[in-house]
Nucleic acid binder design. Structure first.
Lengths: 195, 195
DNA sequence: GGGCTCATGTAAGTGGTTACATGATTAT
DNA sequence: ATAATCATGTAACCACTTACATGAGCCC
């Protein structure tokens, strides 16, 4: 009975705390989203399947008068999570990086356009860094509360994206140094302004 | 008429050289696979669609007696490629990193198991580094031949994966320093050996 | 002759996103 | 009152992988 991709995040999210599907989604969006995403369309059906397989238990736990179902790991669920975590299977690693693909093909572009491609990639990763920096305080609190690993992955995301920003900056420099401006002396002083 | 994901790699692969579907697949597997993959099941149908859209032209170009169809960009195809490359649309960036997900949940594990998780991730990226180093000479040749950007992305892959390896090594150190071996003084001298 | 690589495709299935439907509760 | 958030789900669709089918030429 192989664990699905979504199954892995779900069991992991329930490792210490029973949660609702909604809360799992919140957690994923707020922390693992950058390296492992999940949508409602996957979470709810998978929670049902994990229930059938006996890996999670559901319990009604309304907040105020609002209906709410929290899920917690069964013993089998805890075992399945552990088995996956220690499994020596090769690790899934998939990337789809449009910015880098553009760089790959940038030799068809004029030098200023190629430069813009790299700048756009840098801007993207600078924005990611900013978003990660914004959640850093929460991670510090978590770390104080004994949870060391989630903050570690935040550190990872920050370091990695900063490395990418630096790489882009370096390439931008090399490009503007190596490739001279095209027609730097193209003033239009000869064309009279129409207004 | 929006360009699909596969469409992007295909048009890019044809930017300078007409190629067969088979050759496109070879190229992708040998270079962009680490950040943008594509399978035959996508490439052939998409080549047909791009033909209908007038973005590529097909020409029979058998090698020896073996049938072969090469595709080249039409003017419209060249324009579509250029439009995509300079488009300011937000860049697709998707990652699915199972190693990091395991690290995220590693607080449920015993300290030696958590250490093993990080080591496994490091091993994975060390293998990637080795594979990329193996193709470095080809990239050097390409660079000499005027194509500067594909080798740049190889550099990127190398640098990034080396950074990850270093991060893992650092975390491993911190883990083995900060978390003492569990029961370091559990010698069984009191239990007489049965043989 | 047998196995490998070149070469082109299709069919079935999987994994995932997006949009929608519904409804209660809380905050402004 | 109404907008935002909490909460649970489903249906349609899209992207992608895997496996298969087919066949020719190449190398030993």
């Amino acid at each position: 009975m192989e664990l699905t991709n979504v199954g892995k995040v779900i069991l992991g999210s329930l490792r210490a705390t029973p949660r609702s599907g909604y809360e799992i989604k919140q957690l994923v969006d707020g922390s693992t989203r950058f390296f492992w995403a999940a949508s409602y369309g996957q979470i709810y059906p998978e929670l049902a399947r994990l229930g059938v397989q006996g890996l999670v238990e559901r319990e009604s736990a309304p907040t105020g008068g609002r209906r709410r179902t929290v899920h917690s790991l069964t013993e089998a669920g805890r075992r399945a999570l552990h088995d996956w975590l220690v499994s020596p299977e090769p690790l899934t690693m998939e990337v789809r990086d449009e910015g880098l693909l553009k760089v790959f093909f940038a030799d068809t572009l004029a030098s200023d356009e190629a430069l813009a491609v790299v700048r756009a990639k840098r801007a993207h990763h600078e924005a990611v860094v900013a978003r990660l920096e914004a959640v850093e305080p929460y991670a510090a609190a978590e770390r104080a509360g004994g949870q060391a690993f989630p903050p570690l992955t935040l550190e990872y995301g920050l370091g990695l994206n900063r490395w990418i920003v630096a790489w882009c900056a370096d390439v931008e420099e090399r490009l503007s140094a190596g490739l001279p401006e095209r027609q730097p002396r193209q003033e239009r002083a000869d064309v009279p302004s129409t207004r």
